[in-house]
């Protein structure tokens, strides 16, 4: 005992000269962490620089030159694709968000534990399906399957502008593409929402129940308000994915350059991502610059969505405190 303490007393001053192993570990770890952080920033900066440098020629080019050598004046050319990107993503979210929140609530607050866990796994598995498979499924299975429904909607509810126009004979419409996109963003939104719902404080759930709230009233009082920032973050992540998704849209949709809100026709606006993917292989010269400039536009849109999401979450944070 006394020997030990003597050894320790001896060892103490030595540590000033030789950094002890713990501190080395700390330093290595903080170095790695800082390094990875910096690396991510560098990659992001490089991507932005690439988009800017390669895209600028198209942005600055004389419209006449773009008409001759490219796809046409830039703003005019890119506008329908920006519209198509936003419209498809908005439709996808409109379909996916209520379903995701419903499934997440079911898993976190309704399903018996034995059912909840497998269901959670299945949803997570859905996230692992490659997007090209979703594309195949959308084009080969979903489109023919929904075509009669779209035709029916068009015939009976055609007076509503959304369902108007000439119904597509193939079912490959923007609504079909939106369903495929919705299926792809569903797992992200669902699993994030489920995590947030599970974290709702027991304390407040019991407070609501003790006041005589029904199960659903308890969820409205104690779970959803607590989860709101998390839901917003989840939706924005889903939106990010829907905006950038290429394959599924490219395979389902034969997109064109219409700016049209009609959901059921064969004349659909294409998205930026799909346009780039479809045109890049044959592009050369200014066309390449123009496609890269479209990529820059998509980058800016996605960045804006993320920034807005962060701002909303931060603004709500002070009100949702689990204090």
């Amino acid at each position: 005992m006394s020997q030990q303490s003597m050894i320790r007393a001896d060892a103490e001053p030595a540590s000033h000269h030789h950094p002890d192993p713990k501190r080395v570990g700390d330093r290595v770890f903080s170095g790695l962490a800082t390094g990875s952080g910096v690396l991510i920033l560098v990659i992001l900066a490089l991507v932005a620089a690439f988009l800017l440098i390669q895209g600028t020629p198209a942005l600055l080019a004389d419209p006449a030159k773009l008409t001759a050598q490219g796809y046409g004046p830039f703003a005019e050319w890119v506008a329908p694709y920006v519209f198509g990107t936003l419209w498809a993503a908005a439709l996808a979210l409109f379909l996916a968000v209520p379903v995701s929140i419903g499934i997440a609530l079911f898993i976190s607050h309704y399903a018996p534990r034995r059912l909840a866990q497998p269901l959670g796994y299945v949803i997570d598995l859905l996230a692992a399906v490659p997007s090209v498979v979703f594309g195949l499924w959308g084009a080969a299975v979903l489109a023919p399957a929904v075509q009669p429904m779209w035709a029916w909607l068009n015939a009976n509810l055609g007076f509503i502008p959304l369902f108007g126009g000439q119904a597509s004979g193939t079912g490959r419409t923007i609504l079909t593409a939106a369903i495929v996109l919705a299926t792809m963003v569903l797992p992200i939104i669902t699993s994030l929402c489920r995590e947030v719902f599970l974290q709702a404080p027991k304390l407040h759930e019991e407070a609501a129940l003790a006041l005589g709230a029904t199960h659903w009233e308890m969820i409205k009082m104690a779970v959803l308000p607590f989860a709101r920032p998390g839901i917003i973050a989840a939706v924005m992540l889903g939106l990010g994915r829907a905006l950038g998704e290429t394959m599924a849209v490219a395979m389902v949709l034969s997109g064109g350059r219409q700016i049209s809100f009609q959901l059921l026709t064969s004349e659909n606006p294409n998205t930026i991502a799909a346009t780039i993917a479809q045109n890049f292989p044959e592009a050369f010269g200014l066309k390449v610059n123009q496609l890269i400039a479209a990529g820059l536009v998509l980058f800016v849109i996605t960045l804006a969505v993320n920034t807005i999401a962060r701002w909303i979450v931060a603004r709500r944070a002070q009100y949702s405190g689990a204090n």
Partner: peptide, 21 residues
């Protein structure tokens, strides 16, 4: 049980006012 809880109120060990209200 919902009706029972409306007649029999409860106060918990840790104060739990609803934070968003």
């Amino acid at each position: 049980p919902v009706r029972v809880r409306r007649q029999v109120g409860m106060v918990f060990q840790r104060p739990n006012p609803f934070p968003t209200m």
